[in-house]
Design a protein around this nucleic acid. Sequence first.
DNA 1: TGTTGTACCCTTACCCCAGAGGGTACAAAT
DNA 2: ATTTGTACCCTCTGGGGTAAGGGTACAACA
Lengths: 137, 137
Amino acid sequence: MQSQQAQRAQIAVDIESPEPLFAQLIEQIKKAVLSGQLGPGDALPSIRQLANDLNVNNKTVAKAYRLLERDSVIQTKGYRGTFVHPDAVVNSSFDLSARVQSSISEAIEACREAGATDSEIRIAFGHVMQNRTTGGD
Amino acid sequence: MQSQQAQRAQIAVDIESPEPLFAQLIEQIKKAVLSGQLGPGDALPSIRQLANDLNVNNKTVAKAYRLLERDSVIQTKGYRGTFVHPDAVVNSSFDLSARVQSSISEAIEACREAGATDSEIRIAFGHVMQNRTTGGD
DNA sequence: TGTTGTACCCTTACCCCAGAGGGTACAAAT
DNA sequence: ATTTGTACCCTCTGGGGTAAGGGTACAACA
């Protein structure tokens, strides 16, 4: 199992899991918000702090925080630290990845029904993604 | 340049081109049909024959033929050989890849506007494509 | 026997990407 | 001086895809 706990929040990470670490962090924090373990305005451990507690890389935690802030689950206040967003509870139940996946899924299904090969679909996808790199990780 | 010509049809292939060989073949044949150089019912060189003439692998030609037949540009009659499809002219102007690409493009654009990262889109795409391998190349 | 398309097997090389780690640096504030 | 988030640089591992080639085999014919 090898999970390590962060004292401040109830956050654990499983290195053995196929689920990416940053995704586990996002999931954990959202879950903590939804269960009320974390309330709006609560302070989150700093990136370096949490990374150290969980024995993961700063960038991994930073990535999770970045995504969480984009989804308005947390709020970063520069040098003052990171806090739970006022609307965190509502926003935590919103899964953008799921939305994206179903959107993509529909398009793919349509292509398949049109007779397109998986290979062709992949190629087309690659071409579209290649043409503008919006940037961002 | 290094292009080689097939006597029977006006088909050339450029090894230096970044365009895949099989795609060049498809394009060439469609062009030949659209320009009237190949008419419905005309016999095409056999897979092995054309592969030999152009100095490419059998499988490469076979792949092009397979896609062309799926799109009803050509017609394979088993041991008798391959022929230009009766509706070849109409079907040659239909580019499934382009259709697929625009369909995928729309979905991607929607995801981007929803705030999704390119990375997230790729991940979602990968997940969808992974779940059912329809098979086919 | 030879040709047709087709279906398998396996191999090569190339490219792109995700995930994760390591390091250094910076402005803004305390 | 230290902490904060953030932005760069670099690395490595692994996975999965295409494209193309090489080979062998098959049933259906002529």
